[in-house]
Design a protein around this nucleic acid. Structure first.
Lengths: 171, 171
DNA sequence: CAGTATCCTACGTGATACTG
DNA sequence: CAGTATCACGTAGGATACTG
């Protein structure tokens, strides 16, 4: 039986990226990580994912160097973003932008997206764009903040608020 | 058996995006489309994908409105990018950038990436960046050109050249 | 709290052969 | 050329129960 082609060995960097990020849950786990989640059970509840598959996905992400597993007091662990993981953020944001624009559901609020991402220092909304290399100051996930957009549910609103409080910086 | 959770119904736009793009072959099919491929057998050869699965993936992409199937003379067809499909490009480029930086293989040329994307009008290399919304002129896949980078194989070089010749514009 | 351990199923994938 | 038709397989995903 031919094993499915291993994209990690492909020449194309996008194929290799998808070997890590293309798995259905990977990006959603990273989404939570970007929003500040670090603990197993927090991922579990936020995603509604079975613990066995969450464990498998986290393990894969750690093996790929996107997250690191850090022991904290009392055999607890935290899953923290690495630099490699943090740099997924532009791709993530690009996907969010595309999803907002092109994958809206009929029942979605017409007024706007569920989450708005703004520059942390100025509060201005940000976007992902193709630009001539080196012409704009680099901005990372650390420079931005997720705010509840017009379409956000009360539950999401609360989640985002508690997050910003907890956030000591999960570097 | 509970069907796997349908990401297309999720609240998160990224989840919905991944319902379409997260499937392993989808992005690679789009890669070829971005590089100008439109015909079934051209996708088949470029990707080394089995015809049945290519057919299934193309069908899904058409259903999602990312490609359109256009009849041309002599029961031939072309798969052309829609606006929705073209706007995947920033996300694609972001993934390429990340793959180039973080998923390099040991045997990769240390000198640079296999494909370099440059602004069509000026020849300057481009990149994807997070910017304050509305501060840069929007650039699309039509404004850029893929060139063989330092690490490109002769075969790839030739593919890119013939592409740029063929390219009448697959809108 | 942070996972393992089982068991199960559907689907994405693959090879190959065939058709209008 | 542009696919469809079979058949088969592995594995991500899921439910649930259990452990240090």
């Amino acid at each position: 039986m031919p094993p499915r082609t291993d994209f990690a060995q492909e020449r194309c960097p996008v194929a290799r990226a998808m070997a890590v990020l293309g798995e259905r849950w990977a990006i959603l786990i990273l989404r939570e990580a970007f929003y500040g989640v670090t603990r197993f059970d927090a991922f579990e509840r936020a995603l509604g994912i079975a613990p066995n598959i969450l464990a498998a996905r986290l393990k894969a992400l750690v093996e790929h160097g996107v997250l690191r597993k850090v022991a904290v007091e009392g055999n607890r662990h935290e899953y923290r973003l690495t630099d490699k993981g943090r740099e997924v953020y532009p791709a993530f944001l690009a996907l969010k932008q595309w999803g907002d624009r092109w994958m809206a559901l009929p029942e979605d609020s017409p007024v706007g997206s569920v989450i708005e991402v703004v520059e942390r220092s100025t509060g201005r909304p940000v976007e992902v764009a193709i630009v001539p290399a080196g012409t704009v100051p680099p901005m990372t996930v650390r420079d931005v903040k997720a705010l509840p957009g017009p379409g956000a549910s009360p539950a999401l609103r609360e989640r985002l608020e508690t997050m910003h409080k907890d956030r000591a910086d999960a570097g």
